[in-house]
């Protein structure tokens, strides 16, 4: 059954699960901002079904491409939502999917570049009806 997200949810709050997953992913590398565009609704009326588009700015050539795009939730019961594997065959680093959000929170996208660099984007989504048990 759906439940109401707490009106007072601070989206800045991040679960210990997220922190551990993020640390595992990023290690000692400092991810840079500004290379990833994430289209997510500002307000998701139904947390079971939140459409998203992720685009990473990359030439997608043999010399410079996006290897992986990690989609993380900061406050779902499981932090890792998905990992997408790309290659120069894609030509454009853009993926779409639909995700669950159990309550208002930040969605974090981390992209791994072919040279080992990391990019990051953080997007807050306010959730009206939480995606139960996501």
């Amino acid at each position: 059954t759906p439940h109401r997200a707490d009106a007072g949810d601070a989206s800045g709050e991040r679960s210990a699960l997220f922190d551990a997953e993020f640390k595992k992913l990023v290690g000692t590398i400092e991810p840079v901002e500004g290379k990833i565009t994430v289209d997510l609704p500002e307000i998701a009326e139904n947390g079971n079904f939140v459409p998203l588009t992720i685009t990473v700015d990359s030439a997608m050539t043999a010399d410079e491409y996006v290897r992986k795009i990690h989609l993380l939730s900061t406050n779902n019961p499981v932090a890792r939502v998905a990992t997408f594997h790309l290659s120069p065959a894609n030509a454009v680093a853009r993926v779409q999917s639909r995700m669950r959000l159990s309550k208002t929170q930040d969605v974090v996208v981390v992209a791994e570049m072919s040279n080992g660099a990391l990019a990051i984007a953080t997007t807050q989504v306010k959730v009206t009806i939480g995606g139960c048990g996501s």
Binding site: N48, F49, V50, L71, S73, N76, P77, V78, R80, V81, A82, T83, F84, H85, L86, S87, A89, N90, A91, V92, A93, R94, V95, Q96, S97, R98, M99, R100, L101, G131, G133, S134
Partner: peptide, 29 residues
Amino acid sequence: TFGDKEVFRAELGPGISANPYISFQMRVP
């Protein structure tokens, strides 16, 4: 895969919605 070459892969967790929808881009070889 396209013509026996892997062109895209996704590992999905429980945070992906029911009836998973995934789209990606590809240059036609």
